Simulated assay, not measured.
Amino acid sequence: MEGFRVKLAQDDNLFEWEVAIFGPPETLYEGGYFKAQMKFPPEYPYSPPSIRFLTKVWHPNVYENGDLCISILHPPVDDPQSGELPCERWNPTQNVRTILLSVISLLNEPNTFSPANVDASVMYRRWRDSKGKDKEYENIIRKQVSGGRAEAEKDGVVIPMTLEDYCIKTKVNAPEANTDMTDFYVDDYDLDDDDDQISGEEYEDGDDSGNGES
């Protein structure tokens, strides 16, 4: 899937995953390779998983110990003091892909209203408000990205550097595969043009799956 790789930390433990997040192209994090640990509680999906970065990440929403602070992973409770709406918090319809895409989005667009790392938040706002003239925040990120590239090389991982490589596209390589879904529906099902339904007689005549014929 686009932007990240996941695998089990141990084959016999479905509740703990190793995650590698690639920095999005055309952002400060371009070329980055950030490792993280994702843990699922026994009550999942009714309770959210947690994410802790194993790679050093200087970011307004990442604590010093690597714990990620993001609304989508906060329990679905009504907490007016947090400034978060209930709809912004965890709900069981979320999955690993939506979580990690939210993390990737957060890399480039930090939430500075309730930062986990105040110093990083102040530094980021200076960089943003100066339109990149204040380089302190940018230089730290570039240094971490450079370190991530070295780690990726050691792991034998190729980091996507372009949007085309970053966004994985499904390809059908089998020569016999039929990729025209319109033809699939028309050829395999005899549709009644008048009412867009399959009549019982047409279904019985066209379906050989239950009569033992091949």
Results as ranks from 00 to 15, higher is better:
210 G>F: 11
12 D>G: 00
23 G>I: 10
89 R>P: 00
92 P>S: 01
97 R>L: 11
40 F>D: 05
89 R>N: 01
193 D>S: 07
87 C>W: 10
210 G>E: 11
60 P>I: 06
161 M>P: 06
82 S>E: 07
205 D>K: 11
135 K>Y: 04
103 V>D: 03
97 R>P: 03
12 D>K: 12
81 Q>F: 08
23 G>D: 06
212 G>L: 02
135 K>G: 04
185 Y>L: 15
179 T>A: 10
100 L>T: 09
58 W>R: 00
6 V>E: 08
5 R>L: 13
173 N>K: 15
13 N>S: 04
213 E>S: 01
176 E>M: 11
124 Y>V: 10
2 E>R: 12
152 A>G: 01
71 S>K: 15
122 V>E: 12
206 G>Y: 02
64 E>D: 07
72 I>M: 08
3 G>H: 07
129 D>P: 03
88 E>Y: 14
147 G>E: 12
93 T>F: 14
170 T>A: 10
182 T>A: 11
56 K>I: 08
13 N>Y: 03
54 L>V: 09
61 N>Y: 05
124 Y>H: 10
47 S>D: 09
200 G>L: 15
67 D>S: 11
119 D>E: 10
110 P>Q: 06
135 K>S: 09
44 Y>W: 07
18 E>M: 05
101 L>S: 04
187 D>P: 01
142 R>P: 02
23 G>P: 07
41 P>F: 02
64 E>G: 00
103 V>E: 04
39 K>M: 15
176 E>A: 03
41 P>M: 03
65 N>E: 05
76 P>L: 07
80 P>Q: 13
206 G>M: 08
165 D>N: 11
82 S>K: 02
168 I>D: 08
199 S>I: 11
187 D>A: 15
152 A>D: 02
97 R>K: 15
50 S>M: 13
90 W>L: 11
84 E>T: 13
105 S>D: 05
114 S>Q: 14
19 V>P: 04
74 H>K: 14
72 I>A: 02
162 T>N: 03
52 R>A: 00
12 D>A: 05
99 I>M: 13
156 G>I: 12
47 S>G: 05
87 C>G: 06
7 K>G: 12
7 K>H: 10
212 G>F: 02
48 P>V: 06
51 I>F: 03
17 W>V: 14
132 G>V: 12
164 E>N: 05
161 M>T: 14
187 D>T: 13
78 D>L: 15
213 E>G: 00
213 E>V: 02
55 T>M: 06
34 F>K: 14
14 L>R: 10
117 N>A: 05
13 N>A: 01
19 V>C: 10
138 E>C: 00
180 D>P: 04
193 D>C: 07
102 S>A: 15
16 E>V: 15
139 N>D: 02
74 H>D: 12
204 E>D: 07
206 G>T: 03
178 N>T: 07
65 N>S: 08
171 K>R: 14
176 E>C: 03
